[in-house]
Amino acid sequence: MQRLTLHEDRFSGNAYKVRLTASLIDVKIHESIQYEISKGGTRTPDFLSKINANGRIPVLQVGSDKYLPESNAACYYLATGSRLIPSDPWKHAQVLQWMFFEQSFVEPTIGTLRYWFKRTGEDNFSQEQQVVSSSKRESAETALQVMDAHLATRDFFVDEEMTLADAVLYAYVHLAPEAGLDLARWANVHAWCRRISNHSGFVSMDYRESEET
């Protein structure tokens, strides 16, 4: 595989899922380039023209001139051909199903709430954030309930072993407490998080440096 560079903010769960996927299959990300989104780091003319016209990170750079935005696309690229993507077409499609679920129902709810709680602070919520946070919490709880019910009879989301679906879901789900959600309410999800964290190749999320900037 060509040299890999990850354009990211380590505070981001989307960036973490790319690093987690790479670690699980022992693929090296050679360089990490950090951006301060709040200071317009991803809105410069150079970034928009060269790295991602949508002005968002993470972006996985492959070699010197290939740029892949969207975290789940980056994870899928890395995991193609690995044990994280089943060869069976039905199981393969189920992996994609849960990846789509993550971007539709997990990242926009848990991810957004966590960002507001950690970067804005609940005491500083705008009136709009106060209103929207309630609906996002309800949606997040619904998503966690769906996941919890699915895990009632299995250890992982698709197969008997961990797949890419588990990796991408874990990224924001394990951060639910930082979004004001107590994972102990969803015992199966809580146990699943422990299984992921004990899996071979697991790497924890460390964003302390990002928090301080």
Rank of each mutant, 00 (worst) to 15 (best):
D65Q: 08
F100P: 08
N188H: 10
V59T: 14
Q2R: 15
W186M: 00
G13F: 01
M147C: 12
K136A: 15
P69K: 03
G63H: 06
I110Y: 03
A140W: 08
Q145H: 13
I29R: 04
S104I: 01
A22I: 09
N198M: 04
Y16G: 05
A140K: 05
Q97M: 02
Y67H: 04
A140Q: 02
A184S: 11
P58A: 07
A187V: 13
I57W: 10
Y35K: 14
V95R: 01
A187H: 03
I25T: 14
Q127D: 15
S126K: 08
E138H: 12
F11I: 13
F11D: 10
H92G: 06
L84F: 03
E122K: 03
H174K: 13
K28T: 15
S64W: 08
V59S: 10
N72I: 11
S204Y: 08
L164H: 06
I29H: 02
L183H: 10
Q94E: 15
Q94A: 07
G41M: 08
H199D: 12
Q94T: 10
E211P: 03
N72Q: 08
Y77L: 03
T44E: 01
K17W: 02
D148I: 08
G121S: 06
Q2G: 05
R195P: 06
S210C: 09
V62L: 08
K39L: 10
E160R: 11
L164Y: 13
S126P: 09
T120V: 11
L183S: 00
E138I: 15
I29N: 02
T112K: 00
S71W: 04
T142M: 12
R114T: 02
P177H: 07
N188F: 03
Y76R: 12
S135G: 08
V62G: 00
R3W: 07
A15V: 13
Y35E: 07
M147P: 06
R185P: 03
L96S: 07
E122Q: 05
H174C: 12
V173Y: 02
P89S: 05
L169D: 11
R83C: 10
N52K: 01
L48Y: 02
L164R: 08
A176L: 02
W90G: 00
R43E: 14
L20T: 13
S197I: 07
G111N: 03
G180W: 11
A165R: 05
S197W: 01
E211S: 15
L151Y: 11
G63Q: 11
S38Y: 12
Y170A: 08
F100K: 12
S126M: 07
F156G: 08
P45A: 04
S71Y: 06
S32E: 12
K17Y: 02
G40N: 10
P108A: 05
D88L: 00
D148A: 04
E141L: 09
E211W: 13
K118N: 09
T112G: 00
E31N: 14
L113D: 00
S126W: 10
G201N: 14
L78V: 03
E128T: 15
Q103C: 01
L78Q: 01
F11W: 08
R43G: 12
S64P: 02
L169P: 04
V62Y: 07
L48G: 09
G180L: 13
Q145K: 03
H150K: 13
G121R: 05
V18F: 00
T5S: 10
I110F: 01
A140S: 07
